[in-house]
Design a protein around this nucleic acid. Structure first.
Ligand code: ZN
Ligand code: ZN
Ligand code: ZN
Ligand code: ZN
Lengths: 163, 163
DNA sequence: TGTGCAACTGTTATAATGTTGCACTTTTTT
DNA sequence: AAAAAAGTGCAACATTATAACAGTTGCACA
């Protein structure tokens, strides 16, 4: 898995998308999971940018392109994608974003820019270790970590209205 | 601020509640904020246990005791309490819980037991530091951290149906 | 090649969570 | 006392998510 583009830096985002789709096909093949057309399309829509997309935003895009979709269509696809580690749900935003580390066993940490809306997913061993230790000190068996940091990204610290 | 009881250990929970209320009165006085009867009652309801309470659960309790409340009543009270650091919102549960560290400047870390539903709020310097460093390495200006760990508490690791 | 099962999809309805806007009351300030 | 600010009640509405059930498709296997 090669280095990823930074969300808030100009980059060839089509490369992000096609990489994500090809990763997804590989993962699903390997897990004998069916990446059906609807699921693949939802994944592609979620990857349209590095900004999290709400389930109803996905729904609107599907509807706009003639797909006869209802909320369960979208939520089911998103559930599937989450279960196979292809997208993450950002709890503080009720929105979904493509996973930038598919395949790697990871605990995502999300840096959410409140100005431009872009989200960077990180993996940081010292953060994971510290969390694991803190939970362990309370004899708590940790299973899932939600770690979301809201703030301002490098681009927006200098250019206030970065899009 | 004295040591807190562990949520999942039997304890005199009335002490938790009265401590929370007296802390809240002190904080509000100090900040010239008005802890009105509705706000105080909502805080007390949220503190009824160490399990997070949904806004509509609070609403139902208010209604049950004859208070003529609507959703905005509850959300406004909860907003006020959050702004003054008296309750936290648990994003992964859409629910609210009393803050166990009022007054201390802290970044809460929540250990959420998926069996009994109790939540323990921790503060851990090495976790905060690791998160701050990881964000700093990306030149990201962190403003708010959401850190919620789902898993199984010590009590529920041995007694499966702990209530 | 069919045939049965499991997974997937479409559709309708509904639940759960959260917000807006406005009129009115209470408290604080001047 | 008058004006301003903060708080409350209320109705309507917006957003997010799920339940239930019928129909369809893909796939293993006789
Ligand atoms: Zn990109
Ligand atoms: Zn930004
Ligand atoms: Zn207690
Ligand atoms: Zn427990």
């Amino acid at each position: 898995m090669s280095a990823r583009a930074l969300p808030y830096r100009p980059h060839n985002h089509d490369a992000c998308v096609s990489q994500a789709l090809s990763d997804a096909r590989a993962i699903c093949q390997q897990q004998s999971a069916r990446l059906t057309p609807t699921r693949e399309r939802v994944l592609e829509l979620v990857w349209q940018s590095h900004k999290p997309l709400g389930a109803y935003d996905v729904l609107a895009k599907l509807t706009a392109e003639g797909h006869n979709a209802a909320p369960p269509t979208v939520y089911r696809a998103l559930d599937f994608l989450q279960q196979h580690g292809l997208v993450h749900r950002i709890a503080s935003l009720n929105a979904f974003i493509g996973c930038a580390h598919v395949g790697e066993h990871h605990t995502g940490m999300f840096l959410i820019c409140r100005v431009c809306g872009n989200v960077l997913e990180l993996t940081d061993a010292s953060v994971s270790t510290a969390i694991r230790n803190a939970a362990g000190a309370e004899v708590f068996r940790a299973e899932a970590v939600t770690l979301e940091v809201a703030g301002v990204c490098p681009g927006c610290q200098t250019e206030p209205n970065h899009e």
